[in-house]
Computed example of a mutant assay.
Amino acid sequence: MKNSKGYFYYFVWMLGALVLMYYGKQFTDMMNHKTQTFYQMEYSLIGQIVYGLAFGLYLSFLNGFPNRRKFHRPLFTFVFVPSFLLLIYPIITIYVKQIYIVGYFEIVRDPQLFFFGMLSALSLMKSTFTTR
């Protein structure tokens, strides 16, 4: 039985996911309650982006730990780059007013922003590393 594929690994991974969800919710609530801004960005937006990226990074460990570098160009190009651009689009529009898309904020709300963050971190890890 492989070390990263045993029952104990998946049990510990699931406990870690529960802990990440619990503290992630507290983190996003804390960021929502802050009223200050950081370089013209709201803290709630930063909290949602960071939580989505952290959860996607943790989700990439479901198949095991990264073993060696192997770049998978189609996954990086067609999944990571668009999802990452859609994730940071609200930050880009704060500084660059010329690329504002009118219907973006009606389509993409809080849950979708989390999934874009999760998808971008997961696809970045899977396109850069192979697992054991």
Rank of each mutant, 00 (worst) to 15 (best):
A54G: 00
V96S: 07
L87G: 06
S60W: 14
F71M: 07
Y7P: 03
R68L: 04
K126L: 09
F65I: 14
S127M: 14
F80S: 00
I49A: 11
L122V: 04
G6W: 00
Y104W: 13
Y9Q: 01
F105T: 05
I101S: 07
M1W: 13
H72T: 11
I107G: 09
I99T: 09
M14Y: 07
K126T: 09
G56H: 04
R69I: 08
P82F: 04
V108A: 08
Y22H: 10
S60C: 09
Q112E: 15
V19H: 00
T130Y: 15
K126M: 10
S127G: 15
G64K: 06
M14S: 12
S83Y: 03
I94H: 02
T28V: 05
T131E: 08
T130H: 15
S127A: 15
Y58W: 07
F11M: 13
F11I: 11
F115P: 08
K70I: 08
P66I: 02
Y51T: 15
W13P: 01
S83T: 13
H33Q: 12
P90K: 12
T93M: 01
I101Q: 04
Y9K: 02
M118W: 03
T128L: 11
S127Y: 11
M31H: 05
F61V: 00
F71C: 08
W13N: 02
T35I: 05
M118K: 03
H72Q: 10
Y100I: 04
Y100F: 07
Y39H: 08
Y7W: 07
L62R: 03
I46L: 08
P66Q: 09
Y9M: 02
M30P: 04
F11Y: 14
T130K: 13
L86Y: 10
S4E: 11
I107C: 07
L86N: 07
R69K: 06
Y100A: 05
L20D: 04
H72R: 14
Y51G: 09
H33K: 03
I46A: 03
Y95V: 03
L119R: 00
G24F: 08
L15K: 00
G64M: 08
I91C: 10
V50F: 15
